[in-house]
Simulated scan of single mutants.
Amino acid sequence: MKIVIAGGSGFIGRKLADLLIEEGHEIIILTRNDKISSKDVLYVNWLKEGNNPEKELGNVDVLVNLAGVSINQGRWTMKHQKQIYDSRMIATEELLRIIAASPRKPAVLINASAIGIYPVSLDAVYTEDSKETADDFLGRTVNDWESKAKKANEYGVRTVFMRFGVVLGNEGGALPLMALPYKLFAGGTVGAGEQWVSWVHFLDAVRAIVFAIENDNLYGPVNVTSPAPLRMKSFGKIIGSVLKRPHWLPVPSFIMKLALGQKK
């Protein structure tokens, strides 16, 4: 299949491209920066004035949208929040334009999403059928993102929303940031420590995308998390144990808000 990945230079995007290449698929990565194509990957410029990627793509079988400013980099200032939100809306809008301009529509759009669409709770269990949405920055962003991507249905394109949990990997995702205090011998419970961490290993996240591509009966939201979520306190203890670092300094919630920025 000819598979186009927007956000193919990110952590999950790189791993996904590698796996799909191994499986023999034709891979195209949409990029803002000029990159030299190889025998395995064709790079096509987009999101800059004068770019018309649809002219280079031809007939596409699958679109995968992973594009957007990372939520794991930088403080959540108002400026950064705007970048996170706008980058997702703009990229998705451009993919919809590409779909509209394509004589033969792709069979499926796999659109990244996040479990941040659900409200924070210590006892609720959320499934793909849950209707509750969080009324905070991340919840509103994910809700608007999915609503925009859903417009692909109007072109007869099967659309899947991959609601990723906390993605873990040594090279990227949330783990490097979460492990940093332990590496500095300053790791400990955040707040009360009862918060749930619904995590997923990056390879499982990548394989879930491939599963969604290959199964025509899958559409709408899909929660991509491990079946064994952990409380924050237990999660932190495991990080400390693996890194052979102590888990002892409690970190008050207000300190984390100062460090990470406002999330409302």
Rank of each mutant, 00 (worst) to 15 (best):
I28T: 12
F11I: 14
L16N: 05
L42E: 13
I21Q: 04
G10L: 10
G7W: 11
I36F: 08
E22I: 03
S38G: 07
V4W: 05
R32W: 06
V4K: 06
D40G: 01
Y43L: 00
F11E: 15
I29D: 03
G7V: 05
G8S: 11
E22Y: 09
D18Y: 08
V44S: 01
I29S: 03
A6L: 08
D18G: 05
I27L: 10
D34Q: 13
G10D: 09
S37Q: 01
I5S: 08
L20P: 00
A17S: 15
I12E: 14
E23C: 04
I28W: 05
K39N: 14
L20F: 06
I29R: 10
V41P: 05
E26L: 05
I21A: 02
L42P: 00
D40K: 15
G13W: 12
G8H: 10
A6C: 11
I29F: 06
V4Y: 04
V41S: 05
G24N: 07
N45L: 13
W46N: 07
K35Q: 14
K39I: 03
S9Q: 15
L16S: 05
E22L: 10
K39G: 01
K15I: 13
L47N: 12
F11Y: 15
I27C: 06
F11D: 15
I5Y: 06
A17P: 04
W46D: 09
E22G: 03
K15C: 09
R14F: 12
E23R: 15
E23M: 13
V41R: 00
Y43W: 04
S9A: 13
R32D: 07
E26D: 12
Y43D: 00
D34P: 01
I29H: 02
I28G: 00
L42A: 10
L47H: 08
L30Y: 02
I36M: 10
R32P: 04
L19T: 09
G24D: 02
G13H: 11
A6H: 08
H25R: 03
S9I: 09
I5M: 12
E23N: 15
Y43V: 06
E22H: 11
F11G: 15
V41Y: 03
I12V: 15
F11A: 14
G10C: 08
I29E: 01
W46A: 10
G13E: 11
